[in-house]
Design a protein around this nucleic acid. Sequence first.
DNA 1: TCATAATGTAAAGTATTGTTTACTTTTAGT
DNA 2: ACTAAAAGTAAACAATACTTTACATTATGA
Lengths: 65, 65
Amino acid sequence: MKNLVKVERARLDWTQAQLAEELGVSRQTIHAIEKNKFNPSVILAIKMAKLFNVTVEELFSIEQE
Amino acid sequence: MKNLVKVERARLDWTQAQLAEELGVSRQTIHAIEKNKFNPSVILAIKMAKLFNVTVEELFSIEQE
DNA sequence: TCATAATGTAAAGTATTGTTTACTTTTAGT
DNA sequence: ACTAAAAGTAAACAATACTTTACATTATGA
């Protein structure tokens, strides 16, 4: 798993805290996702993708496996 | 949350067990997803969408929050 | 340089996803 | 009607997403 959350967030010039707020999750959740500590739910992924105006597949990609 | 897993599975004429096997999860997981018992991980959602040849957003949609 | 915001990290706790087993009900074919 | 496969349901368990709190480190600006 690989994701462009940090990149897309940077494009909007948002902090982790702002993004978290916007999505209704904690800042640590954003941090953990950016660091690939875990694999978010599809709902959260869809909300994020929508916010960033990209598709889920663009935002998250499965590398091997 | 709403999803078209059952519909897409029907289009391929697959059983829950076949789909589960294909995705490397249990049949109960497929059943639970079809019944909206839970909100799968984005990895599983991406794998499913790929199998069905649709986008994650087509397969899963957020209704109200 | 000093202060403050932003990010990184960690650990304990809660909620939810996903597994396993097992049994019931429905569907489909003969 | 009988049989077998498929789907529904349920409950106990394991794994992991996500929260909360707290503190350390790095970036940014006055």
